[in-house]
Simulated scan of single mutants.
Amino acid sequence: MGARASVKAVMAATAVLLMSPLAQAQDFYSGKTIVLYAGQPPGGGIDNEMRLVAQFLSRFIPGEPQIQPRNMPGAGGVTLGNYLYASATADGLTLGMPGRAGFVLAPIGDDKTARYDVRRFTWMGSAASTNFIFWARNSSGLKSVADLRALKRELNVAGSGATTSNSIVPEILARYEKFPFKVVRGYPGMAPAVLSLERGETEAIFSDRASIRPDMIASGLVTPLFQTFAMEPNLPVIDTLLTDVRERELIGLLATPMRLGLALIGPPGMPEAQTKILREAYGRMVRDAAYQEEARRRNFDVGTPNDGEAIAAYLSKVISGLSPEVIAEYKSFVERN
């Protein structure tokens, strides 16, 4: 009996050694917990979409690990980016959704607090490109871009950081198109910025639809004036408003994170097998009918998903193609007080 038991033990150990890395990774997730971070405080669009991913992703991962949602806000996603880049273990059990422009563009703007290279993260994918819309509060009296161009007073626009699109895009338009925007920077996230709009502290915001509560739209509290991509019917696209070549390049740079969408990422150097499993699981999730139904119900972007490898390649191409002049001017906006 002892000899037989020894033979069985050797056979079992040999079988484990002969398992492919992918098979071992599939077994690896059984009984484990994945910690999934959002790079913004609770309550905003990034936090809410992270929690939707936490709700659905597990069922598409072999072994169905638990997924624990957490928040690590700070500097428009930069704090979480630093953590994932240098401190998190690259074992497939720590993932994040840091954000869009603040996270992606901070290193380009030479932000000394951003201690990472976005090209080195392990990109899992995103559900769709994110369409940012310029919303005006009803108290502003604005109903169209023509009204905006004719406005003779300053319009306070809510911003949430030095590197975020909701701060910099309106400032670019103010510089080049002479729109009467005064961006109020410093709100600690999109949710507080939207709250300022609701309270009347500010009268406009440049944000994704998911960050604006449906009742704010339905009640007429806010009106959309223009959008980044041609996704909303009968709404002007920002590209048609631009009159300067440099302005177009700057807006194109700021639109890059929106085109990527709100991506799911892991630390650099994750094992190939875990990366493959998580990329495939995320891809199946964002194409799942139940996920898409819930995403639409919450006003999240649903469209053509972006896979992780394509995102990494696109980022490398964009970053390598930036001119020093565009980078310098982008930095001038980031460094404004």
Score class of each variant (00 low, 15 high):
residue 311 I to Q: 07
residue 59 R to G: 13
residue 333 F to S: 04
residue 2 G to R: 08
residue 103 F to C: 06
residue 12 A to M: 07
residue 87 S to T: 15
residue 228 T to L: 08
residue 37 Y to A: 04
residue 40 Q to W: 09
residue 4 R to V: 09
residue 207 S to M: 14
residue 273 A to D: 12
residue 279 R to V: 05
residue 185 R to K: 10
residue 266 G to E: 01
residue 112 K to R: 13
residue 95 L to Q: 06
residue 79 T to Q: 11
residue 165 S to H: 04
residue 267 P to G: 08
residue 2 G to D: 10
residue 24 Q to S: 14
residue 187 Y to H: 15
residue 230 A to P: 12
residue 269 G to A: 07
residue 332 S to C: 03
residue 337 N to W: 02
residue 46 I to K: 04
residue 283 G to D: 09
residue 16 V to K: 14
residue 118 V to A: 08
residue 9 A to I: 09
residue 185 R to I: 01
residue 183 V to P: 00
residue 159 G to N: 06
residue 118 V to N: 04
residue 293 E to V: 09
residue 248 R to H: 14
residue 54 A to K: 02
residue 62 P to C: 13
residue 320 S to G: 11
residue 46 I to N: 14
residue 91 D to M: 04
residue 90 A to D: 11
residue 162 A to D: 11
residue 318 V to A: 08
residue 253 L to H: 05
residue 135 W to P: 02
residue 60 F to W: 04
residue 296 R to V: 07
residue 162 A to S: 15
residue 144 S to G: 13
residue 21 P to A: 10
residue 152 K to V: 04
residue 179 F to T: 00
residue 256 T to H: 13
residue 203 E to V: 15
residue 77 G to W: 01
residue 127 A to E: 05
residue 175 R to M: 07
residue 326 V to E: 02
residue 168 I to C: 01
residue 15 A to K: 14
residue 85 Y to E: 07
residue 102 G to Q: 05
residue 57 L to Y: 12
residue 84 L to K: 02
residue 77 G to Q: 01
residue 269 G to S: 11
residue 167 S to T: 14
residue 181 F to D: 00
residue 263 A to G: 13
residue 26 Q to D: 15
residue 304 T to L: 06
residue 12 A to T: 14
residue 319 I to Y: 15
residue 195 L to F: 03
residue 324 P to I: 00
residue 33 T to P: 13
residue 336 R to W: 06
residue 302 V to H: 09
residue 242 L to Q: 03
residue 19 M to C: 11
residue 231 M to H: 08
residue 126 S to T: 02
residue 136 A to Y: 04
residue 271 P to N: 08
residue 279 R to N: 12
residue 68 Q to N: 14
residue 111 D to L: 06
residue 220 G to H: 10
residue 312 A to Y: 05
residue 99 G to N: 03
residue 108 I to S: 02
residue 79 T to I: 03
residue 69 P to Q: 01
residue 31 G to Q: 12
residue 205 I to L: 09
residue 113 T to G: 14
residue 19 M to N: 13
residue 286 V to W: 01
residue 113 T to A: 13
residue 257 P to R: 00
residue 189 G to Q: 00
residue 33 T to C: 06
residue 101 A to G: 06
residue 255 A to F: 00
residue 207 S to K: 06
residue 337 N to R: 12
residue 263 A to P: 02
residue 326 V to T: 15
residue 152 K to G: 11
residue 256 T to P: 12
residue 100 R to V: 10
residue 59 R to Q: 15
residue 8 K to R: 10
residue 173 L to F: 06
residue 81 G to W: 03
residue 326 V to P: 04
residue 192 P to S: 06
residue 25 A to T: 12
residue 294 E to Q: 13
residue 329 E to W: 00
residue 139 S to K: 15
